[in-house]
Write a protein that binds this DNA or RNA. Structure first.
Lengths: 186, 186
DNA sequence: CAGTATATGGTACGACTGTTTCAATAATGG
DNA sequence: CCATTATTGAAACAGTCGTACCATATACTG
């Protein structure tokens, strides 16, 4: 008996909160402005998530979930040559539409370096996200259990993303990826 | 006439504030705890620097200055082959002693992505810092004014730094750099 | 000494923070 | 209608934030 719970509300709030965090970043996140933008109240955010920290955790999990599905939709891991897949991943992740996700990844990474205790396993989750990408390149590895080549490939992508997001110089970063593909062919 | 100014005090405060920021990060920086750790008062910090934002700018400039001189001291840009220089840079910047600098770089980068207005030209300053490193590799470029190869080299270093600081897996990241050197030789 | 400029302490302001408390409303089953 | 459970609003609490104001202390010149 009693009024039935409405789990859909929490999920809808989570979805819109994730949009908000992707748009505004994690750094200055505050419950009152967030609640105002979501047409709810700080009271309800805490009612649904318990605390700000748990809300942030939920938002990060949701953002990761979204990124993974979008990647799976657009980049079948078996299509084409390794080089074509590498170019596909770069085109996908460096596209302007992905900028909010990329920004959030860098933000969590940086905050996790200063305050590791705030992200118990989420730093690893970010790693897993890149590891998923890295698995795509297992076939250009030197040995079956070689983790070095995927590590290098992911480092190039992350490093070029850092460069692109800082300088905005798409031409130079695109050509640097070309150069890397060249090196990989030999 | 009147009491003479004491510019040494401001510089001493700046040096110790830079130490503090390198140790504690930029994210949660607050005047009162900072002043307490520096045996001074928020009053004096504002007296010397005008505002928190200007203090942060001064600290970042100082940190950049330190990083540049430490690099110049330890890595003469003309010594050895490009590969030896690349390994030298990686060994230098990935050393545990550089961790605070690296953390700060990632932190400023991430914060600059979310709030570009807070760092009018300092995002470019970070780029310049890496550009200085990149100039070291101009001789393995394909053409004299090739910026692509230095871009790729710096991307590998930044990407591997991201990986190393997240996972702590030094063996894997070191070997990934070996692999990159291999690719560069051909 | 007075005059003057720098340096510093203490304090309070207004705005914000995450969270709590108390009360009211809404929706169900009996 | 009533008991019960979920939901929601309004307000307050205790704290922190950057900063401004006012007084005082300090060190120098003439």
């Amino acid at each position: 008996m009693g009024r039935p719970p409405d789990p859909a509300r929490r999920e809808a709030t989570l979805a819109r909160a994730t949009d908000y965090v992707l748009a505004h970043g994690l750094a200055g996140l505050s419950l009152r402005p967030l609640a105002a933008a979501l047409d709810t109240s700080p009271r309800m955010l805490l009612y649904d998530f318990g605390s700000k920290q748990e809300l942030v955790s939920a938002v990060l999990a949701e953002a990761r979930r979204r990124g993974a599905t979008r990647l799976a939709e657009n980049l079948p891991p078996e299509a084409g040559s390794p080089e074509e897949r590498l170019r596909g991943i770069w085109a996908w992740i460096s596209a302007p539409e992905r900028a909010p996700y990329v920004r959030l990844i860098f933000e969590v990474h940086a905050d996790g370096l200063a305050h590791p205790e705030k992200y118990p396993d989420q730093a690893k989750a970010i790693t897993n996200w890149f590891d998923t990408l890295g698995a795509t390149f297992r076939d250009i590895a030197t040995t079956p259990d070689d983790t070095v080549t995927p590590t290098l490939v992911m480092a190039v992508i992350r490093g070029l993303l850092f460069d692109l997001t800082t300088t905005g110089d798409r031409h130079r970063t695109d050509r640097a990826l070309d150069r890397f593909c060249e090196l990989l062919r030999h």
